[in-house]
Design a protein around this nucleic acid. Structure first.
Lengths: 200, 200
DNA sequence: CATTTACGAAACGAGCCCGTTGCGTATCGG
DNA sequence: CCGATACGCAACGGGCTCGTTTCGTAAATG
């Protein structure tokens, strides 16, 4: 009955290396972030990049999808703090968060998965959309609805269409805009363009 | 010196089957349209679906990329005829062309390739952007510039940003909008939203 | 008819990745 | 120290695709 640590109750034997687990997940995210599709993602490649034996991976995850889910779950998608001073400022802040992440391989995982694997891994995508996309989408929705209420935005504005305008324009720059990092003033320019519209 | 057909000068022997060639290209486009990435695209799968021996494929194309390029080259991307009556009508027409194609597997090839394979097949993507994307982009640019000249659009409008607004919003609906076919009135709604802007 | 080339089908050796196993070593509790 | 578990590494048999070759047949020229 003498258990040294009342918590955990370690099962005796060498404990699993946290470092190895970290390395495996890092390697997985790296590969996905570099554009490797889930289908082409090979355990061998992950093990090799992580400097780890395949055994160590199979001991923890029974299949590839579980590993991918766990790896993606470590990605945080915090909604940036919003000042609430003006709709324009909050929208810029939301886009700025997207811009910063577009340059980080880690965050590209989200985009790559959602954009490319929807057909072949619907469960994975769905789970991930709910976790990483939906919170920000909801934040943007609230900003827009607040703007309509305060009169900063058109009273007849279609909220969903407004979100599509902003997000879509940002998405366009991310995928089809000039190569390289997105310019620092892009969020501001997009928001102003969307607010003003194209008509005189 | 007696050549029966002055043209062609057929090299003697059984001529290559046009039907087989057609079937190969159709099968390739089908697979890509269904979401198969160029990397995962297997010659065996193409041959199988085309009802053709692998020999017949390798006799014509020495590698997979050449086949994909040829297959994609058969896709036409005609710029829809523009009435020129108003900027609004022309923009709607351009988006309507995108909408119609978004439901056709054939035309999804373009999107799938450009969106997913940019990193791994840059030459292929570049060649294809020039062929299938650039003409429409140019058409839209001209419509917008004409609108600025005629006063239908803001004189201080950033043309590139305007194109990003329209194309990006459409792109957003294609990829992230509610599943299924895009509603018939979407182009009109997008154009009106972009023209009006979100501000009152 | 003979010749030439293309066809579909099948088989080949090679390479990659699968998931598993055995090995020697490392690290924990007792 | 001992038993237990994890580690990295190498190897296994199995499956799939590769690009090539062989085979018997089909379709063209002369």
């Amino acid at each position: 009955m003498s258990i040294q640590e009342s918590a955990a109750a370690r099962p005796a034997g060498r404990p699993r290396s946290e470092k190895a687990e970290k390395a495996i997940i890092e390697a997985t995210l790296d590969l996905i972030g570099e554009g490797t599709g889930v289908s082409e993602l090979s355990i061998e490649a992950i093990a090799s990049r992580a400097g780890v034996g395949k055994t160590t991976i199979y001991r923890r995850w029974s299949n590839k999808e579980d590993l991918v889910v766990d790896a993606l779950s470590t990605l945080k998608a915090p909604v940036p703090p919003l000042t609430g001073t003006s709709v324009r400022d909050d929208l810029i802040r939301l886009l700025e968060a997207m811009r910063e992440e577009s340059g980080m391989a880690r965050s590209r995982c989200v985009m790559n998965i959602v954009m490319n694997e929807t057909d072949r891994h619907p469960r994975l995508t769905e789970r991930f959309v709910k976790r990483a996309i939906e919170p920000r989408r909801q934040a943007m929705r609230e900003v827009i609805e607040r703007g309509i209420a305060t009169g900063e935005l058109r009273p007849d504005l279609d909220v969903d269409m407004g979100m599509a305008l902003i997000t879509g324009t940002m998405l366009w720059h991310t995928k089809w805009g000039p190569a390289g990092d997105l310019p620092a003033d892009l969020p501001e320019r997009i928001v102003d363009a969307v607010l003003a519209g194209m008509a005189p």
